[in-house]
Every structure is written in structure tokens, then in C-alpha cells.
């Protein structure tokens, strides 16, 4: 059987290890396709996908849209900033209006955790979560896992440190679930104010010293400091953050090992990463972007092909 265990992709939690391997293996085939002179396959030529973004996004939306178009799906885009949401329409009404136009799949980003789950419970179309609040961002975790697997051959046994704002990050949570399921060891590192309490309960190591974290890991997945999500002051200044948690060339050179640097983007250059690190051979940030398209094609292909049981 080659199908996923779920009809929707709401989060990594809820998928099985087999699902993850299935998605990553399928992404291998799509990565090969998007590197051909003709990068498109006709698979989803009678399939319509709505990208519904209630929260701003550039790269995730572009990546999804490109993945959909490479699969020959019809694509419609909806973003909340110029829509009826401002006039007071409910989420379900908005989506049902879109579905009346015969849409088969909804890719949604929403600021409220659980919004995609709610949607999946109420509509027939497949739902793909493109980020819900500080809950999950499953396709990012899948592409991060894929990128690690591509470099090392296997995720299992690798040590991954997630560094930065863990508290506000859906990328961190999805990454923890995915990497652990694939057999990696995970550590989080950041200012104490930005690490949620009870992290250890997830089987994750917590480290407050970035040098120790880097010395421990094979891969550092560096998260963006999300200034726009912080209503409180979690650290005194960006400069101080950068001094204590920023990763620069000097710091990397002082380790006695080579590590990979990942970042989900967009980078605050000079804050969490200096330019000489972001643009160095250690960094696989642009590979992540390329892999994002292949992984999203795999997710869409596998969900779209799955009929109701």
C-alpha cells in the first residue's frame, strides 16, 4: 500500500514514521523532475487547489504555488489582507465559498493554532496546513528532514540543534516531531525566556549556551527571531541577542568539527546568522528552498491520490 495514513496534513504529530519515509521517498522523484529541462508533469491536470493565506507569507506560498503548478494543478490564491475576512466573514464561510467553486484541496495558513484541524473536520476537500499560529508547520519540517537526509543519507542517529525563538515557533515544534520520529536526537537552544517550559517532556535536550549546542550537534537549524510576534520583551536588544546567540564565522571555526547550518528564512542577517555564515559552504539554506518545492509536490501528490476510505 502506498498511501498515507491521513487524508489531510495538519501536523507531523499524527503521521506515522512510514508516512514520513513515503513523503521523503516520493520527494526524491519530484526533485529529479524539477531539475529536468521540462520541470512539469501532467499528474494533477484536473485538480484544483486553493491557497488560502490568512497570514502573510511569501516563500511558503510561492513554494506551494510552484509545487502545484509543476503538478499541473489549477491554482487559486486568496489572501486575507484584501478579502472579505475584513468584512467579518467567518473562516468556514470563507472556505465554503471557495469550495463551491469545486476546489479539491485547501492549503491554509492561519494565525490561530488548530484552524486547519477545524477546517478538516468540516469540509470534504483535503487540507494542508501551511502554518497555524505557534502550533505546526509540517511541510517545513518535512523539507528540513529531507535536506538533512539528502546531506547525510539518513536522519536517524543525527544530532540536530534548533536554535533561536522556540517559544513562538511552529517550525521548531514540527521539526522536533519529525526529526524524533525519523530517529534523530534533538536539542533546543535559545534565551531562557524563549524556551517553553517542560520542553524536556518531549524528549528534547535544552541548552542555553549556543557554543555548547553547536559543539554537540551535526546540524544547526537556526530560527528567525520573529520580532513581529513578540509583544513582550523577551530579550533586552537585538544586539545582545546577536552577541549571545548569533552564529558567526569565528564561532564556527572555533569548533573542532564541521556542522551544517539550516534556516527556514527569511534571515535576519547579523542577528541570528552573520552573512559570512549564511553564505558559506556550511549553509544549505538555498538547498532547503529547492527541496521545499519537491517535498510539497510529494505531499500534494500523495494526499490528492488518496480517496476517502
Amino acid at each position: 500500500m502506498s498511501q498515507l495514513s491521513k487524508r489531510h496534513l495538519i501536523g507531523i504529530k499524527g503521521l506515522t514514521e512510514r508516512d514520513l519515509h513515503k513523503i521523503l521517498d516520493t520527494a526524491d522523484q519530484f526533485k529529479q523532475i524539477i531539475n529536468r529541462p521540462i520541470k512539469k508533469v501532467p499528474t494533477l491536470r484536473d485538480f484544483t487547489i486553493a491557497n488560502v493565506f490568512f497570514e502573510n507569507s511569501t516563500r511558503t506560498r510561492l513554494s506551494f504555488e510552484l509545487a502545484e503548478k509543476r503538478l499541473s494543478a489549477d491554482v487559486i490564491n486568496f489572501s486575507a489582507s484584501n478579502s472579505s475576512v475584513k468584512k467579518g466573514e467567518t473562516l468556514l464561510d470563507t472556505v465554503n465559498n471557495i469550495l463551491s467553486m469545486k476546489v479539491d484541496m485547501v492549503v491554509m495558513r492561519h494565525s490561530s493554532p488548530g484552524a486547519p484541524r477545524f477546517l478538516a473536520d468540516h469540509i470534504d476537500a483535503h487540507v494542508v496546513n501551511a502554518g497555524d499560529g505557534a502550533h505546526e508547520h509540517p511541510t517545513q519540517a518535512l523539507l528540513d528532514s529531507y535536506s538533512i537526509r539528502e546531506k547525510f543519507g539518513d536522519v536517524s542517529g543525527r544530532k540536530v540543534a534548533i536554535i533561536g525563538d522556540i517559544l513562538h515557533s511552529r517550525v521548531a515544534l514540527s521539526n522536533i516531531f519529525a526529526l524524533q520520529m525519523l530517529g534523530a536526537e534533538v536539542m533546543v537552544c535559545g534565551p531562557k525566556t524563549l524556551i517553553p517550559r517542560h520542553m524536556e517532556a518531549l524528549g528534547v535536550k535544552v541548552e542555553l549556551d549556543v557554543r555548547k549546542a553547536l559543539q554537540w550537534c551535526d546540524v544547526a537549524n537556526v530560527l528567525r527571531i520573529q520580532l513581529e510576534r513578540q509583544q513582550l520583551k523577551y530579550f533586552p536588544s537585538l544586539r545582545e541577542y546577536s552577541n549571545y546567540f548569533g552564529i558567526n564565522k569565528g564561532l564556527l571555526d572555533s569548533l573542532d568539527k564541521e556542522i551544517l547550518i539550516m534556516h527556514p528564512g527569511p534571515i535576519n542577517r547579523g542577528v541570528e546568522l552573520t552573512s559570512d555564515v549564511a553564505d558559506s559552504g556550511h549553509s544549505i539554506i538555498l538547498d532547503q528552498v529547492e527541496n521545499g518545492v519537491a517535498v510539497r509536490m510529494a505531499v500534494i501528490y500523495l494526499l490528492a491520490g488518496r480517496r476517502a476510505s
Binding site: 502506498s2 498511501q3 516520493t26 522523484q29 523532475i33 494533477l44 491520490g305 480517496r307
Partner: peptide
Amino acid sequence: LDITFYRDDFRTRRNPLSANQT
């Protein structure tokens, strides 16, 4: 040559086929 993504029965199958290497 793998033809999985070029088949005409994607909509009528119960499950997606696994692709092989091209």
C-alpha cells in the same frame, strides 16, 4: 523511464502509485 506521474488513472485509482526512479 518511470511513467507514474503521466498516467491517466490518477483520479480513478483508490491510492496513489509509488513512483520509481527515472
